[in-house]
Write a protein that binds this DNA or RNA. Structure first.
Lengths: 233, 233
DNA sequence: CGTGGCTTTGAGGTAGCTCAAAACTCGTGG
DNA sequence: CCACGAGTTTTGAGCTACCTCAAAGCCACG
């Protein structure tokens, strides 16, 4: 399960668009702190390696982060395309870290959140990078919250897929209106506060209405204009 | 409407618990950047003073921040007790700033988010403080999202009031189980993704069940244990 | 003492839920 | 190469939590 390699600076810098928030110096530090790459198969939890606040870098594959409620309900905070960094805010604030599970086979690396938090105090470059990353993440979260609070199921599904599309396009623009999305309807439900059944029906309706078509692991946008109109509310 | 005074460093340091995230040096900078105190009456929007991304300090009174949807729906992001700082993430990420409106008469001060963002780049102390503040805020937001996604109306109302209580206690512990809450049911609805009518019925039921009692501008907790059980899910 | 916002209550509608079961997909082992 | 099993998607049927509309009472403030 463990691969021998440790990710290099160059590798890290080439990851998701989050790296743009950090200076080279800060990325070098992250490269130093991060552990070896390891593989996790589909539908498995990323191991925390004993850290209170693990931070994960996803090199390949898709994951999602979530919290379990004591009674079995589950809140999926976000899905994570390849290249993302996960758990930074929890690490820096000493809050409960979310669990991270996989949607596909994943190759990831881990670093200890406690160490990252220490760097936040000791390295100016790190502090600056973190503040930029966290500010950007917060803005996205608030978008998502607005969708949860005020959108219908149909709109939530549309808005989620549009946000995902735009996130992926930011990293690697294709302009093609088709994007990877190996996200099960169960996970979408737990992210959007809906039952699986209703996610299914909403997707069906989006397809019938000629707005988008979700297949097993990708999505085709059929009418970008209408989609955008839906997602804005 | 404008009072002449400019808030002093001492004043700022005595504000909400957010100041704990910042060093004295950073607080001094904030003190320098912040404009004069001004008053806004109940049910009014805080003026942005022409800034793209205004950041507000609330000295006295309560406010709430929100986004309007084009069709009239409204998403209230959070309510703000006296002493809070509002709009930091939007300023640092150049995203759309929320509007801020008042629940009571408010005395506030404003600073230009663009200037704050510049300081984030030029001052190490500021960057560090911001990264800590933003990390803590993000953790709270994720809690709130979980409530939106997975709680019933009854639980959402309970969880919101409990969170508010704990926030207020953190700043000024009383241990009394009674706390200020001049939040209208309309605003609670727009925060929790519920209709006013249903907020009203949920509050009624919480009172009937002997859990808590909301009055015009405060809340009395009747059964803290039961409340906590409800809020956790 | 009238007016606007807030709260409260009733009545009826509907979006989204639960339960249940069938069809499909895909990785695994024989 | 097939059969099996676990997870996922899809569909149907019935239920309920929450919504909308409407109206009345209440309170604060000018």
């Amino acid at each position: 399960m463990y691969t021998a390699d440790r990710p290099s600076l160059g590798w890290i810098a080439g990851q998701g668009s989050w790296t743009a928030h950090f200076s080279d110096t800060a990325l070098e530090q992250i490269a130093e702190l991060v552990g070896p790459l390891f593989d996790v198969s589909t539908r498995n939890i990323l191991p925390d390696g004993g850290a209170q606040n693990p931070v994960f870098l996803i090199a390949e594959g898709w994951g999602y982060s979530y919290y379990d409620f004591p009674d079995g309900r589950r809140h999926v905070v976000d899905v994570h395309p390849p290249g993302e960094i996960i758990g930074v805010a929890a690490a820096c604030s000493r809050h409960n870290a979310p669990r991270v599970s996989t949607l596909t086979q994943v190759t990831a690396a881990r670093l200890d959140g406690a160490v990252l938090r220490k760097r936040q105090d000791t390295s100016d470059d790190m502090a600056r990078g973190l503040s930029r990353l966290l500010a950007a993440q917060q803005a996205d979260l608030i978008d998502q919250m607005g969708s949860l609070a005020r959108h219908t199921a149909y709109e939530r599904v549309a808005a989620f897929l549009l946000r995902l599309y735009e996130r992926l396009e930011k990293g690697a623009p294709t302009g093609r209106g088709v994007f990877a999305c190996p996200v099960s309807q169960q996970v979408m439900g737990d992210l959007l506060g809906l039952s699986v059944v209703h996610v299914n029906r909403s997707l069906r309706r989006l397809a019938e209405d000629g707005i988008l078509h979700k297949r097993a692991s990708d999505v085709e946008i059929l009418d970008a204009r209408a989609l955008r109109r839906l997602a804005v509310g």
